[in-house]
Design a binder for these strands. Structure first.
Lengths: 235, 235
DNA sequence: ACGATGCTACGGTCGCGGCCGAAGCGACGG
DNA sequence: CCGTCGCTTCGGCCGCGACCGTAGCATCGT
């Protein structure tokens, strides 16, 4: 079982700004090279190398060598979930005079739509969740969530590829997880269902990653698609 | 929204062994005085005081002064959930030669039954979850869980006080959250339902806190009660 | 009023760890 | 085969923060 020193070790790992930056930039599920991570962390490659070695040794990161590059990604969804938990606590922390440090164009894009590890977040993510709840397809509580049978049918109808195990007739319910949105302070859909919805949106070309950030651009086709599918219109 | 420096700050807070020890000892939901926390952290009161001040300033801890004592407790369930997430990652971390560092009587008691913030864990917690699942009262998936209507009726019949909002007839489902057990590596019931079950067991005198630890003692009455209520017998 | 107790504030010491420059190693490309 | 590129290792510098001793401030008991 996890001892105190283990907890402290993980905490200390996340507690360095450079490493925290690396982990945060990997939260969208992509795999980045050491040099890219060095850039986002604002340190030299040799410093980054040391950090990455420690993160990998502790099992936070998974490394995949490909030619002369080494791709780093979060080792497991558990790591992503831990980071989300930390961000949630950070967002709840009392921090006077933070509201003024917002705006900025890329920040605006981030608040509109972004990925959160493997699902949709931002106004878009929250709007979709709201729409599903309103239609009785989804329920959230403090501790969990469930897609109703009608919700499963609805999403399948849209072409969202729900995990096979849950698509079978034996299961009436599909579980999912609420994930508190940092910018909206309201839950959006995470977990298996969240991943499937996100995947579907990207596959359809409704949203597209904005290079070098976690922000998403909603394409013209997406505006239409999202409205007809979910009844969601931003602004 | 949570910036990288915010994440790093929280991480660094948890990353100190003394502070990690304090937080871990508060995971059972109790409120402890500064001196007690200094003891468990293995530092002098003045050092502990500094740590506690920082933890409180960042919103991880809530302080309640009572006479000349100052009681500290986790500020919110979100903090507990974050710590659980960290422990989960720590437990999954590759750590050769750790299996040998077990045994010890209090450790054995911990593995049998303990509290995890506000719900039951250990073999007892897992056994209850298993029993509920087997009876069709509960479902778990990777991302969430739900108590079925029959489960809600079953628990209410036992005298478990499910939260009022969910007891009403309007809601067929009661949500809960699976929490991966460190010692058993299998999920037990957390969240609203977990809290209610734990509360019920202590109220009935089925389990009792073992002083100075998170371990729980199962009383003779508890052995009988748990068997008749849930069909659970440890060993 | 007095001392005891619980906690906090201040100052000084010291060790851990993050950082970079220089150098080494392996992979690719011409 | 040699230059380039991506990454790592090593060595040394330096600053942050954890720690404690001393001292100060509240609260309680008698």
């Amino acid at each position: 079982m996890a001892s105190v020193s283990d907890i402290a070790e993980i905490g200390a790992l996340v507690g360095d700004p450079a490493r925290a930056g690396m982990l945060a930039s990997l939260l969208d599920g992509r795999a980045l090279t050491a040099a890219e991570l060095a850039r986002v962390a604002g340190v030299t490659p040799q410093t980054a190398s040391g950090h990455l070695a420690r993160l990998a040794a502790t099992g936070l990161l998974k490394v995949e060598k490909q030619g002369r590059h080494r791709y780093h990604r979060l080792a497991s969804p558990a790591v992503a979930q831990m980071l989300e938990g930390i961000m949630q606590v950070a967002a709840l922390a009392p921090r006077p005079g933070r509201a003024s440090v917002r705006v900025g164009p890329s920040d605006k894009a981030l608040r509109t739509a972004r990925t959160c590890y493997d699902h949709l977040a931002g106004r878009l993510g929250v709007a979709i969740a709201d729409a599903l709840i309103l239609a009785g397809h989804l329920e959230f509580s403090e501790d969990g969530g469930a897609l109703s049978a009608s919700g499963a049918a609805f999403l399948t109808e849209l072409g969202v590829d729900l995990p096979a195990a849950f698509g079978s007739a034996r299961r009436a319910r599909v579980f999912c997880r609420p994930c508190l949105d940092w910018s909206e302070r309201r839950p959006h859909v995470a977990g298996l269902v969240g991943r499937a919805i996100c995947h579907h949106c990207m596959e359809r070309g409704w949203v597209r990653r904005i290079a070098g950030t976690r922000a998403l651009e909603i394409t013209p086709k997406g505006v239409l698609g999202l409205r007809t599918a979910y009844g969601v219109g931003l602004n």
